[in-house]
């Protein structure tokens, strides 16, 4: 395999290096990373406690939950759709899993599978309705957001599911390294796998084609419906997993798990250069975008800014990031 690659790839001269450099910058993660480095430095200068071990751990912990969903949302956005129901799905899956483990007294493994199943099923439903019936994703998934919220109340009767089996508390409480647990490990592994799939595999390439122009993708023989529905299922399942990690972290099947996440996730991945119009962006970018959003929120808290202003900052940053992205695209595409 190596020899084949060497024979067919041209020598890496200066020009190809430059091309790689441009490609590197044009990918989009670099800009966000640079912006984040600046922000980190800014907050650290104002308040050195920002880079305290505890604060870093807190940021990474929060990022691991929403980040898991951001991975799925990025894949779905690349395929040309998006999902507003991710928060509801996270919450619903968590309480369903909790109920299965407690009220139904099923083994923990079955409960977890049940939770993932709920998420995947809702994803399948969203996908089928959007793709087959042609209802816009905005409407379908917004509807599903409300349906999910309602179902959470139906399942729980409005009370958190508590106590949970000891195994769940163990999952939530495990310290793998640096005070980070299973959710962070899962987040990193899932991000690496998803990034590889989008970048390097036929599946990933077909996903970009589907999101770039559905008709062209169809004409070159790609089953665009299957790709879109698959992406909806992926985001549903990942939302469920994120919801259950939060449940494990809290030690209870709370009814507010996931509430408000949908917009944070979309804002984050968009900040990371994932296009709302489909066919552009990477998982690495989306994940870095989420991280940056959380860095800003945390930074503002640490330097003592009123919490109301944090919301405003998030809004401003998202609009600015997309604006910068448009400028960058124009510049690099024009310069290529």
């Amino acid at each position: 395999m190596n020899s084949a690659a060497e024979v067919s790839s041209p020598p890496r001269d200066a020009q190809s290096f430059r091309r790689r450099l441009i490609g590197f910058i044009a990918v989009g993660e670099v800009g966000v990373l640079a912006a984040m480095a600046l922000l980190v430095a800014f907050f650290w200068l104002l308040e050195p406690a920002f880079l305290s071990e505890r604060n870093i751990r807190a940021i990474l912990n929060v990022v691991s939950f929403v980040g898991i969903i951001a991975i799925g949302q990025t894949i779905l956005l690349v395929a040309g759709e998006f999902d507003l129901s991710v928060g509801s799905v996270a919450g619903l899956s968590a309480v369903v899993a909790a109920k299965l483990m407690t009220a139904a007294a099923l083994p923990v493994g079955v409960g977890i599978l049940g939770g993932i199943g709920v998420g995947a099923l809702i994803g399948l439903l969203n996908g089928l309705i959007v793709v087959r019936l042609g209802i816009p994703a905005f409407i379908q998934t917004l509807g599903m957001l409300f349906i999910g919220q309602g179902l959470i109340q139906v399942v729980t009767g409005g009370y958190p599911v508590y106590p949970l089996p000891e195994a769940i508390n163990t999952i939530g409480g495990t310290d793998l390294a640096f005070g980070l647990g299973w959710s962070f490990a899962f987040f990193i592994i899932a991000a690496v796998v998803a990034d590889f799939v989008l970048r390097r595999t036929v599946l990933g390439r077909n996903m970009y084609a589907t999101g770039g122009n559905k008709e062209v993708a169809h004409l070159v023989g790609i089953n665009t419906s299957a790709y879109k529905i698959g992406a909806f299922i992926t985001v549903g399942a990942l939302s469920a997993i994120a919801g259950m990690f939060v449940m494990a972290d809290l030690g209870s099947g709370g009814t507010s798990i996931g509430s408000g996440w949908e917009l944070t996730v979309i804002a984050g991945v968009v900040v990371g250069g994932v296009s709302l119009f489909g066919g552009a962006g990477t998982v690495a970018g989306g994940v870095v975008g989420i991280l940056m959003l959380k860095v800003v929120q945390s930074g503002l808290v640490v330097i003592g800014v009123n919490s109301n202003w944090q919301q405003i900052a998030v809004g401003v940053i998202m609009v600015m990031a997309v604006g910068l992205d448009i400028v960058r695209r124009r510049y690099f595409i024009a310069g290529a």
């Binding site: 395999m1 690659a5 060497e6 024979v7 067919s8 041209p10 390097r200 595999t201 036929v202 390439r205």
Partner: peptide, 12 residues
């Protein structure tokens, strides 16, 4: 191969 695009082969 196994669904993974072989960069060198594709470039060629």
């Amino acid at each position: 191969r196994h669904g993974v695009v072989r960069g060198g082969l594709e470039r060629g």
